[in-house]
Nucleic acid binder design. Structure first.
Lengths: 118, 118
DNA sequence: GTTTTTTAATACGATCGCCTATCATGGGAA
DNA sequence: TTCCCATGATAGGCGATCGTATTAAAAAAC
């Protein structure tokens, strides 16, 4: 959860809750409840302050990254980036890719997975 | 402001406030007040729903692209990353994507270029 | 060993985020 | 012309966010 990631990053930066509170202007009681996931839906202004002081992109705070325990599952790793570069170099457009995604999604919905074709 | 960017992106996607409300599950009155900057500090869950449906990274919603983005022509920009996330969320594998790229490349090679533009 | 400081947690309250309900306007169909 | 629907805006209210104040425990200083 986001609280876990905030705490993890804060410890990586060798920072206490009080120090983070001082630098962000957010009271430490709220930071404590965020880190312990008692609060789970902070506002964007709160999160931007935290990500700025912790020097980490918002996306990395919000979602698991490769550095977390679950790596490369659901996240974009170098292989995907290579494929995207290859696609753009081949002249494939975003619209074409969007259509491809839609078609694959529709395939999965229409037919349960049983087809085994090469 | 963030409301301006939400509206701009919504219009780019040819979507009304009511349609965006239906897809995000956020009431249109709140979306309207966000776009008109009557509300300026939405929660992260609200913003994630909006950015997901509008297919735009959070950072692009939060900040002007010109001032923040490092993307340049030819490289992978935020929209591509968004599409890739959508693809992985749909269960599309790298192998499937690679096959798609190959098929598109072969399509282009099989059909000789008849357009003479320049 | 005692005191001070730092750290994190807890209780409570005020403001605001985001909801429901409704209104005003314009376009299309009957 | 009237009715229906979609669109965007407005009013009011409840529950959540995020603040203040305080407490408890551990570490550092004397």
């Amino acid at each position: 959860m986001i609280g876990d990631r905030i705490k993890k990053r804060r410890l990586e930066k060798n920072m206490s809750i009080s120090q983070l509170a001082n630098k962000t202007g957010i009271v430490k009681s709220y930071l404590s409840s965020l880190e312990r996931s008692l609060q789970k839906n902070p506002s964007i202004q709160i999160l931007e302050k935290i990500s700025h002081v912790l020097e980490i992109p918002l996306d990395s705070l919000l979602h698991d990254k490769a550095s977390d325990s679950r790596s490369s599952s659901g996240s974009i790793d170098d292989e995907w980036l290579c494929l995207v570069r290859e696609a753009t170099n081949s002249g494939i457009t975003k619209e074409q890719f969007q259509a491809f995604i839609d078609s694959k999604s529709n395939e999965k919905r229409k037919r349960p997975v049983e087809r085994k074709d090469g």
